[in-house]
Design a protein around this nucleic acid. Structure first.
Lengths: 349, 349
DNA sequence: CTGAAAGCGCTTACAG
DNA sequence: CTGAAAGCGCTTACAG
């Protein structure tokens, strides 16, 4: 089976089309036809080729065929997300995978960890490996570095956040609208002093959620008080610490709006530790596992993570199938899930 | 830039070595040398090549180089896990990714969903895409289908469960030992009637944990009572239902041992719903997020998910680097994390 | 319907 | 130190 290399040394490699062709007594082009299911092969020959392939355990080399093929497709896409162990991204990832599987497409993944440099490295690395397209949760300040790649034909769809300085499809949540809903829910419960705890404003989703927070307060005629606003919270621990400080201050808030699931969990821990979980109201952006089992249940703005992942994948495959309409951003609705924590009134009943 | 194909049609493709060579006025072999960092190129020539490459935005085609190269490496590995949205597997996945990144290796992933057929399809599909090796959480009854692939040189390491009918490296938890620890902890608290709730016994880890359960009871001189043993629990809902039934029966258990995180969560929900969370003890196998925030905190047997993923990846890369020692199974220790639920006594105090 | 030749982008194995 | 030729495994673009 292709048993010699140029220097005559024996090579114990996989069987190739050449080996199958030799065993079946046909040209390799005929083997190629059979493997690709072309119907113009005489049944008798096709059977002989199938037998030979089965006998040798032959498997087509996708790398080689993609290299020679006109479309250069590898049936592989790349998926760059913030962190695979965040439940929101795990759910979107799973949805992308399911959509890809239906098309026989495999997924290369990478965790970007909110690191611009890593986003670039991973994106380029996946493109170098020949992915047909990319689904990206962007972290870098802008995505202009992908302009040449886009021109060269790599399809890409952005997930959770829109790209900057690059015109491409995106699927995002209604972050501003969801935040307004959250804060108006607390306002309707009688709260006037509502704290904001969120991730760094450099992340577009955090900025939009903070914007919604401010907008809801403005509509209610309340000014944003910087004393009860905390940005830059990136972990459960930092959120717990910040929540602890907020509820310990002179004029503490009667309610918290947390803009992300890790921040919500940190806030829950801080309230619990202070014994204030039934006294201070709280609404979190993004649902998380067990939010319904905690006491009180955590009221959240839920996002359609699987739906977003599925749509992003569908848009990508549409582009790969030749869709050349103008790029657009799809905004996916969010909804309030009331479970108790968001329905605590200002007097702590 | 390679602007004509055989038939003379213009092709708007990526620049190739040929284009760089033409622009720099050298042979493509010289471009190849520069791109691969071979030191034997005259500095002046190397600089000219670098300039030309930068000007054209040239990126080496990894697919093509891997095809021609002797080792055939693609700097890609495959990772097949049960489900990316399970926190245990998400954590192992992240550890494998981190280990791979250090080596410039990318990861192709697939969720097997405990489906034999899917395991086979995915494994073969990834091998066809030329992965250098595989990390697999096996679901199929046996892995003999991989014997030919192993002979042809694909390296593989099994994670969480040992392979069957295939001799290969594996990294697993001390499932039996952990289960014994869990049940002995409950026995030490005075429990004599301890229920078992677990996944299907077809999954090796579930079988081993059930075995440990039986062993701990045997040592204490207690017989396993089939009335308080439930297998085949695969979801939060089914575990909740089973837990509900167990604690509602004539002679209910005073403690539960749940063999997996989804089962533990279902049990927590059932106990909560019945208002029995402070009356019935519970120890779960495998830690999960927020287990410490629930009331009572959920006592668990913790596994070193990141450590297991890291070790599996390290073993795989060692094999890829030529390690040809005999395959072995590494058993990783587990430990008890007492948080309250496991310390409830039989009289419900 | 079948096959011999050329080539995808790169590296190997030479020769100079 | 540099390059022309051959070839990785496959498909394209022909001719029969």
């Amino acid at each position: 089976m292709s048993d010699t290399t140029g220097n005559g040394r024996a090579r114990a490699g996989r069987p190739t089309m050449k080996d199958v062709a030799a065993l079946a007594g046909v040209a390799i082009k005929t083997v190629s036809r059979v493997m690709n299911g072309e119907p113009t092969v005489a049944p008798e020959l096709a059977a002989r080729v199938q037998d030979a392939a089965a006998k040798l355990g032959y498997r087509p080399n996708l790398t080689a065929s993609s290299l020679r093929r006109g479309d250069r497709r590898t049936a592989t896409i790349g998926l760059l997300i913030e962190d695979v162990s965040n439940p929101f991204f795990a759910a979107t990832m799973r949805a992308v995978e399911d959509e890809a599987r239906q098309r026989g497409v495999q997924i290369l993944i990478g965790s970007v960890d909110e690191d611009s440099e890593r986003e670039r490295e991973l994106a380029i690395s996946l493109i170098d490996r020949g992915v047909d397209g990319l689904v990206i949760v962007p972290a870098a300040r802008d995505q202009s570095y992908l302009i040449p790649e886009r021109k060269l034909g790599t399809c890409m769809v952005f997930l959770d956040r829109e790209p900057r300085l690059l015109d491409a499809d995106a699927v995002v949540s209604d972050n501003r609208g969801g935040a307004i809903t959250a804060v108006e829910h607390l306002l309707a419960g009688g709260h006037r002093r509502i704290a904001y705890l969120g991730d760094t404003l450099a992340i577009a989703t955090a900025a939009q959620r903070f914007d919604g927070y401010g907008e809801a307060l403005r509509r209610a005629g309340i000014e944003v008080d910087p004393l009860i606003v905390r940005h830059g919270l990136r972990s459960i621990d930092s959120a717990q610490q910040a929540s602890h400080e907020l509820i310990s201050q002179a004029e503490p808030p009667t309610a918290l709006f947390t803009s992300q699931n890790l921040v919500s969990i940190g806030a829950v821990k801080a309230l619990r530790q202070a014994g204030r979980e039934n006294a201070v109201a709280m609404v979190g952006f993004d649902d998380f596992p067990l939010a319904d089992v905690l006491v009180p249940g955590v009221t959240v703005i839920a996002q359609d993570a699987p739906g977003m992942g599925q749509l992003a994948a569908q848009l990508l495959f549409a582009r790969l199938d030749g869709d050349d309409s103008l790029p657009s951003t799809r905004v996916i609705g969010t909804w309030l899930v009331a479970r108790g924590s968001g329905e605590i009134t200002p007097d702590g009943r």
